[in-house]
């Protein structure tokens, strides 16, 4: 399976993602430059927008990346039902670009939070979570200042009705509506999450390896297609 990983100025998790894809999953990883407009539909099977601080979080986290040339390719890839995984800043970019609903505001406590958190799998019927059990409690690390996922009540009802809530924090970590940690779009081909699965995909790591199933789920859904 071919993964594309975008590097924006200020992205800082792209090498971690490439490592997981190549060394742990034994798949192909292609680093994509934000200044290009590649034909993603012919090039890759899954796109990862990695974490970091694209454009230094100027204006708002993720706000400026949506104006980058490569966004045209991303939108076309999304329209073509390509798989897109947005991790942390990647999640923020996807909401800013309107590819995922809601917005990510400053953490309730106005602090940068960096710790392992317990997450509950709400929806395991997505290409990103099919190897988890429903209601399974998993651990992943988070590291963000703006992870407070916020939607209006009416939008929350829509998310629930369409099974778009994928992961929830076990505890109220950052003030997110309904303790949401990950959502997908209606078609379930785009996932955004604040936790970092690429930082917990090997047993040797202190945060554990429960992130690996997320990448393996992507692989499984691809093979099944």
């Amino acid at each position: 399976m071919r993964f594309g990983i975008i590097s924006f100025p200020g992205s800082n998790c792209e090498q971690d993602c490439i490592y997981i894809i190549e060394e742990v999953l034994n798949q192909k990883a292609l680093l994509l430059d934000y200044r290009t407009i590649p034909e993603l539909n012919n090039l890759i099977d899954c796109l990862i927008i990695p974490g970091g601080f694209s454009y230094g979080d100027y204006l708002r986290a993720g706000a400026i990346a949506k104006a980058a040339p490569i966004m045209k390719s991303i939108r076309e890839f999304a329209e073509n039902k390509g798989l897109i995984l947005g991790i942390c800043n990647g999640f923020q970019i996807l909401t800013e670009a309107g590819l995922l609903p809601g917005t990510l505001l400053s953490n309730k406590a106005a602090r940068f939070i960096c710790q392992d958190v317990k997450l509950k799998v709400i929806n395991n019927k997505t290409p990103f979570t099919n190897l988890y059990f429903e209601q399974e409690i998993i651990t992943m690390p988070i590291a963000h200042a703006m992870g407070n996922f916020t939607v209006s009540e009416s939008e929350l009802e829509i998310l629930k009705a369409n099974q778009q809530i994928v992961l929830e924090y076990e505890n109220d970590i950052n003030g997110s509506t309904s303790q949401i940690a990950a959502i997908c779009n209606k078609d379930k081909n785009i996932l955004g999450l604040m936790p970092h699965p690429e930082r917990c995909s090997e047993k040797v790591l202190p945060s554990g390896n429960q992130g690996l199933q997320l990448f393996q789920s992507i692989l499984k859904s691809f093979v099944n297609v």
């Binding site: 204006l59 706000a63 400026i64 949506k66 800013e96 809601g102 917005t103 916020t150 209006s152």
Partner: peptide
């Protein structure tokens, strides 16, 4: 399109 987040 860029400068504000209409939701917030």
């Amino acid at each position: 399109r860029l400068l504000i987040s209409p939701a917030s």
